[in-house]
Amino acid sequence: MSYKILIIADHLQGALNESTARTIACAQQIAPDAIDVLVLADDGAAAIAAEAARIDGVATVYHADDAAHAHPTAAVLAPRIAAAVERGGYSHVLGPNTTFGKDLMPRVAALLGAPMVTDIMAVHTPHEFDRPIYAGNAVNTVAAPADRVLVASVRCASYPAAAGGNEAAIEPLELDVEVPSHTRFVGLEQQTSDRPDLQTAPKVVSGGRGVGSEENFRIIYNFADKIGAAVGASRAAVDAGYVPNDMQVGQTGKIISPTLYICFGISGAIQHLAGIKDAGTIVAINKDEDAPIFEIADIGLVGDLFDIIPELERAVG
């Protein structure tokens, strides 16, 4: 049986997000006959498509340029994706399990009347996958019908980004589809930072309730800047008002897979551990020697973060 996969490109401010390359890495495990990418954007769609075309494994990148895509909403994009899937005869439609994909892919599945698998972390067969359950403490193997289009989201933390160097074909795509008008873009509020993106950074430094206050969190920021790391936080730190909620790492925050994860003053609640289980090396610093974080840490240090961080800063120069 032949398989043909369509990847929905995740992009922001005219640039392709790494989550797209990670989703393509998952698609490669299915061993399809072709992997295509669909870019839905405004006038910058062609430039984003050129980025996608360089990712290994991609056969063709289609781009649909439309002013309605300038501030995309799931209600606007989903009908057009469904039309592209039906026109192209795809067997699978994959998107990243990011905020973008979580909002969009279920709508696509509903419009296609298709089954959906969320948060794929491993591929067994083209219709059998592993996904995490119980905050990542167990893995569930699920099977989808083989005779229907399958819509799925990919757990990006479980896959490295597919390599570059490809020269896939790029083609414009006309999608003359009526979209609902009851949903419209009003405005966007988001945090901006010069630090690396939390979800894709190779190094992440996080702080928890043990940091003590919003003012004290400066020591976390300064150390992260010293080593070129992104900054995250536990839910306890977010709920306490130390940092904004877009910095939360964990089951109800961001799922990350950095090469190095250093956490200060984080006890290691199960919800937080679910967000860092795919990290390469986990370094934990906490005053409580019985903190659960030490059970999963590769390197653990019992001590006061306000004494240890200055020592670390001196050590890195």
Rank of each mutant, 00 (worst) to 15 (best):
K203M: 15
D147C: 02
A50G: 08
S158I: 04
A224D: 09
P180T: 09
C263G: 12
A297H: 04
T99M: 01
K4I: 01
I262Q: 09
V231Q: 07
K254T: 00
V177A: 13
G241I: 13
N245C: 11
D36R: 15
N137T: 05
V204A: 14
T23V: 10
S213L: 04
P79R: 02
E189N: 15
S19M: 11
M247D: 05
A41V: 06
A84V: 01
N166H: 12
P292A: 07
D194F: 15
D194G: 15
D33T: 09
T73C: 06
D36P: 13
A279S: 15
N166F: 08
N17D: 15
A122T: 02
S181I: 10
A75Y: 05
G280L: 05
L301I: 13
I227S: 14
L150S: 15
I256L: 03
V177T: 14
S257N: 11
T23A: 08
Q13E: 13
D307I: 04
K102T: 01
D307Y: 03
R209E: 01
D239L: 11
G187N: 15
E178I: 10
E174D: 14
G210N: 10
G232P: 11
A201K: 06
I296A: 13
Q190A: 15
I296D: 03
T23R: 07
A114R: 06
A224F: 07
A45Q: 05
G250E: 00
L12D: 15
P32H: 03
V204C: 14
G14D: 07
I296E: 03
V177W: 08
D176F: 04
A143D: 02
Q251K: 05
A152I: 03
I219Q: 13
I30R: 13
D176G: 08
P172L: 11
A163F: 09
I81D: 00
S19R: 10
Q190D: 11
G14K: 09
H69A: 11
A31N: 10
R131P: 12
A230M: 10
L260S: 08
D290W: 09
V151T: 10
A144R: 06
L16E: 04
V316A: 12
H182I: 13
I7Q: 04
A297F: 03
I30Y: 15
E167R: 13
Y62I: 07
L112K: 01
R314V: 06
T118S: 14
P292W: 01
E171F: 07
I48Q: 05
H11P: 13
A83D: 12
H92S: 05
N245D: 10
A201Y: 09
G210Y: 06
A52M: 10
I24Y: 13
D246C: 12
